[in-house]
């Protein structure tokens, strides 16, 4: 039995923009278990970014339930949220979001610093993570000395280095050409097969087709939530 990682029930999120209330999420319910490969799709304004922020514990819902590994995220303090982000979630962003002045190794070490890992262990684990994404020979390069694909690999190594429960990728190929994008998706495929849980937020069908389960959002609701036929590891629909 796979452990249930994320339990969301009737989640809503309302932003106040000036005098206007914006309903980004209007009652979303879903569960995500260990070792799923989920794509969240939807046009802009559908609420997929908001949902991703919720997954990533960067934001808390206005109402409804969000449990991460059985813990209620909506009542967590800032420090507890920071700890969950640090230990349980690996972020991969569209624009990589690497620290420009630090080399690849230091960028990958960063979450371990906040986790309080000793310098020696940090270095070893960051080296391993970079070797895993095929950048073992680029560890001392700074982001501006790396290609787009290599930068995204550094970002993936950084997401993996804390051995998180979930890898959360927001348009991970959005800033890459299609060939490089395809390589990155192959890397995600490998990570999935190695047992990682992956959530990809995208608006590209080509990217979503790699996932085993596709959740489509529209106007803050889940429009469809289907597992791909032929994928054995698909979860409940």
């Amino acid at each position: 039995m796979k452990e249930n990682l994320i339990h969301i029930e009737n989640m809503t999120k309302v932003y106040i923009m000036g005098t206007q209330e914006v309903h980004a999420l209007r009652g979303v319910s879903l569960d995500i278990s260990e070792n799923e490969y989920v794509a969240v799709m939807g046009p802009s304004g559908s609420g997929k970014s908001t949902l991703m922020n919720m997954f990533g514990c960067l934001d808390t819902p206005t109402s409804g339930v969000y449990q991460f590994k059985g813990h209620d995220v909506s009542i967590m303090t800032d420090n507890e949220l920071a700890r969950i982000r640090n230990k349980e979630i690996g972020f991969v962003f569209q624009s990589f979001n690497l620290l420009p002045r630090s080399n690849a190794l230091h960028n990958v070490e960063l979450p371990l610093i906040y986790a309080g890992v000793s310098a020696h262990d940090r270095r070893e684990r960051a080296m391993d993570a970079l070797t895993n994404v095929g950048l073992g020979d680029r560890v001392h390069h700074k982001p501006n000395e790396l290609s787009g694909g290599q930068r995204q690999r550094v970002a993936i190594a950084r997401a993996l280095v804390t051995k998180p429960s979930i890898i959360l990728a927001d348009e991970p190929t959005g800033a890459l050409d299609s060939k490089t994008g395809e390589e990155i998706m192959l890397l995600f495929e490998d990570l999935y097969k190695a047992g990682n849980t992956i959530i990809v937020v995208t608006h590209e069908e080509d990217i979503a087709k790699h996932a085993r389960r596709v959740i489509r959002l529209k106007d803050g609701h889940i429009e469809t939530d289907e597992s791909r036929v032929g994928h054995l590891q698909a979860s409940h629909a």
Binding site: G56, L58, D78, N79, A82, N86, F91, P111, Y114
Partner: peptide
């Protein structure tokens, strides 16, 4: 600002 966002996403607390 962006660096601060990155650090926060990676688990830096307010205190840090």
């Amino acid at each position: 600002t962006r660096e601060i966002g990155i650090r926060k996403a990676l688990g830096a607390t307010r205190k840090i």
